[in-house]
Computed example of a mutant assay.
Amino acid sequence: MAELRLEELSASTIVAVNALTLKPGQEQFVAPVSYSVAAAVINPATAWQRVVLDGDEVVGFISANFDPEAHQEEFRSALWRINVDADDQGRGVGRFAVDSLTDEARKRGFDHVNVIYEPGESGPEAFFLRVGFKPVGETDYSETIARIELP
């Protein structure tokens, strides 16, 4: 694995991001990347979207929101989406993306990052727990709200 790096989502990387594959069973837990792109168009001042590259190859995508004025606290500093290509899962790509996100949150003055996910087999919970998120609540739709505290 070459050195991982982040780049802003752009016209030159969006096709590769949309082509990222998932492992069987993961599709039900991840909305299409186009939803994240649409959110960035609607909220350009608060959206943070990056692709993860391994050399010149796009291997992941992460989308977050930083809005200190959001009405709901869990949306003020939130990880919206993380996708790592099926062939690249388990190689540290997701951890690199989350570490980059938490660095950005710190730079912006936040002391935590939230994520909301649907629990279930093949879902993202094990990954989120491994990288440091801890469940702190539940939405009205039985989704888990988890938080990673930033030192």
Rank of each mutant, 00 (worst) to 15 (best):
A16K: 01
D85I: 07
R50S: 00
A16G: 07
S63I: 00
A45K: 13
Q26L: 12
D87L: 14
A47F: 03
T21G: 13
V52L: 05
L22M: 14
D87Q: 12
I62K: 03
D88M: 13
D54H: 05
A64C: 15
A31I: 11
Q26S: 09
Q49I: 04
F96Q: 00
Q28V: 15
Q72E: 11
N65R: 14
D87G: 12
E69I: 07
L79H: 03
A31G: 14
G94C: 04
G60K: 01
F75P: 01
R76I: 03
A45S: 14
V33G: 04
V37C: 12
V59T: 05
Q49Y: 06
V30Q: 11
N18Y: 01
V33K: 07
E57K: 12
S77C: 13
T46G: 00
G55F: 05
F96Y: 06
Y35D: 15
V15F: 09
Q72L: 14
E69S: 13
S12K: 09
A16I: 03
N18R: 14
Q49C: 05
T13L: 06
S63L: 00
V15G: 12
E69Y: 08
N83I: 15
V15K: 15
P44Q: 08
A19E: 13
V84R: 01
I62E: 04
E69V: 11
V84Q: 01
A39K: 15
V58M: 06
V84N: 00
S63M: 01
F75A: 00
E73A: 11
S36V: 09
G90R: 07
A64P: 03
A11D: 15
I14F: 08
L53Q: 10
A86Y: 08
